[in-house]
Nucleic acid binder design. Structure first.
Lengths: 349, 349
DNA sequence: GTGAAAGCGCTAACAC
DNA sequence: GTGTTAGCGCTTTCAC
């Protein structure tokens, strides 16, 4: 006893009910060409009577748009990207589009395959946070992509695509300078994955701040809390047992935090720290963590708006026209207590 | 000087190059019917020569599968759901499917529209965490859905769909009992959104544990840290200044945590607590938070596997066949220190 | 301004 | 086994 579902009404049903031809229905649907008042009214009536909505699959087969945009990111569950995705989805919704998010899990091959998949599904546009800063295979594939692409957070350096990013350099520099202003002469930069564009920028920002202050940059790449522990231990064994740490991202901050606890060190008395990227419980820690905050929603939203803008104007632009500089969003240094500032927000520098 | 892209090779190109008919190519592509060795070989050769891959859009127009599954959740950026989505995406990938995730932002209307959208795109299946425990409009729409649907975390109570959930009841009961075993006679349950199925279950579990111990359940719905503060203040003003709190989810825990800090209370000395759902920095707090942990990946993965299983067997089952009980995953009580246990893992009860 | 008709790339009868 | 053919639901010339 299988249930039988009435087939969804199709365009021709609407045409018949409205007493017009298929083409006319299609015209009022897409609204580009001029249709007579009368026909327009009757078609709209028929559409609402039947509860008709166009089958997007059929529409896209004919070479029109699929109503789907793609988003290629390293990870879906990462807070940064899921927040971006949420912002992108809201914009997509506004433009009657659906969003397919795919995660590469930092595997260039997976990333490449995902791109192929999205292309086969005729996506209208793509937002890309590549797992790789340089991925030849991906570059080549990207050259054959006929739909607009917008880079997010991690611009592909040589691909000719517009992108939107945070001011990683400036944010890191400000954080480092803040730490320096507290009188530290040892400010470590603990980081992971220095091959990623945003991290690179932060390292540069840190380095410039140190150089400007006439201080020696102290860069440490870590991969675990143990690494961070080593790093802290080495620097605290000297006579000056008071150092500062700029953690270039959340994970580095977590490793540092764990190392500090393991070594029974006091924040900020012995180790002052600021980390890049705000996180949920930053101000519930003991002490609350000072951070560089990105406006993640803005990044996602802007990337999406830019993409839809390009999708609209696609035909009018040469696909290979040079794109401008990336859209940049400034970051904000949120002073809490881990940097050595007082709870009341005053800075003891 | 617009770049011209060579059109992607189509099925008929493959057929011509292989010297066979379209149908034969289609046959080897879908592999169901028997094709001669020779033809099979030549088609495969032609496919790889041309770098051909089938246009999924055209395929789905013909009523076959679209190669896309949908996922309807309240929020994309919520850690629980983004982690589920990641697990689902991995399974989808395994079955050569794409995943479209849509967020309702807790708006029933948005949820309904999202469902329509997904349906128009001919999704092959749907994973659903409804924003609503009872949503008549959604129910009705769901009855007309011809593709398999699997509920996740929040089963639709009256819709006849299989689902996978956590043992919220048991987890909450275990956490509450643990708190009781520490000798507290006042164990509050601080919660938000009691209308959601998982929260309901947790409240029931809490209540049963209290009843079993001959204690009075003390349920408090909060919407802010201030609410939680009020709640704590009221119970601490009595002579017994030692209470326990079971926070029914992360947000309730956060409110409670903030309230505790505002009131300058000590955890666990004055307020012992356990919260439902683990979170990133739970063990970096001071003191580390004891939690009930769900196996989120398992939930997502299993829901997806169940969905694909049903998609495979779709034709062989009556769409209206009664579905079995939900698949349930057990939770684990992670003892840290906020409940009053000692750092070494020993329980002082 | 509007309808008839030709496909978009693929699948699935249906003949052979 | 395999080729031929008729659509899937829509957009879009092209005549009228």
């Amino acid at each position: 006893m299988k249930k039988v579902f009435p087939p969804a009404p199709k365009l021709s049903d609407v045409a018949r009910l409205a007493g017009v031809g298929n083409a006319t229905v299609s015209r009022v649907l897409n609204g580009h060409v001029h249709v007579s008042e009368e026909a327009n009214r009757r078609v709209k009536q028929a559409i609402s009577d039947l509860g008709y909505s166009p089958n997007r699959i059929a529409r896209s087969l004919k070479g029109a748009t699929s109503g789907i945009i793609g988003m290629l990111v390293p990870s879906i569950s990462d807070m940064f990207f899921s927040q971006c995705a949420e912002a992108v989805e809201i914009v997509a919704r506004k433009y009657d589009s659906l969003l397919i998010v795919m995660a590469s899990h930092d595997d260039p091959l997976v990333e490449f395959e995902n791109l192929q998949q999205l292309l086969l599904h005729q996506i209208d546009g793509l937002i890309l946070s590549s797992a790789q800063s340089r991925n030849t295979k991906l570059y080549k594939a990207l050259r054959d992509v006929t739909v607009p692409v917008v880079g997010l957070d991690r611009p592909l350096q040589e691909a000719n695509i517009p992108s939107v990013i945070s001011e990683n350099f400036e944010g890191a520099k400000a954080a480092t300078s803040h730490l320096i202003s507290h009188g530290y002469d040892k400010v470590l930069c603990i980081h992971i994955k220095p091959e990623l564009y945003p991290i690179q920028e932060r390292l540069h920002g840190y380095t410039e701040a140190m150089n400007d202050a006439g201080l020696q940059p102290l860069l440490y790449k870590v991969e675990s809390a143990e690494d961070a522990e080593m790093c802290l231990k080495n620097h605290l064994s000297s006579t000056d047992s008071r150092i500062a740490v700029f953690a270039a991202n959340n994970l580095a901050a977590r490793f540092t935090w764990e190392a500090v606890r393991t070594l029974h060190l006091a924040i900020p008395r012995q180790v002052a720290m600021v980390c890049f990227d705000d996180f949920d419980l930053a101000d519930s820690l003991t002490p609350p963590m000072s951070v560089v905050q990105q406006t993640i929603d803005d990044l996602g939203r802007t990337a999406a708006e830019l993409l839809f803008h390009r999708m609209r104007n696609e035909s009018r632009e040469a696909a290979s026209a040079p794109v401008g500089d990336p859209v940049r969003f400034s970051t904000q240094l949120i002073i809490r207590e881990s940097c050595g500032c007082h709870p009341n927000g005053m800075c003891k520098s």
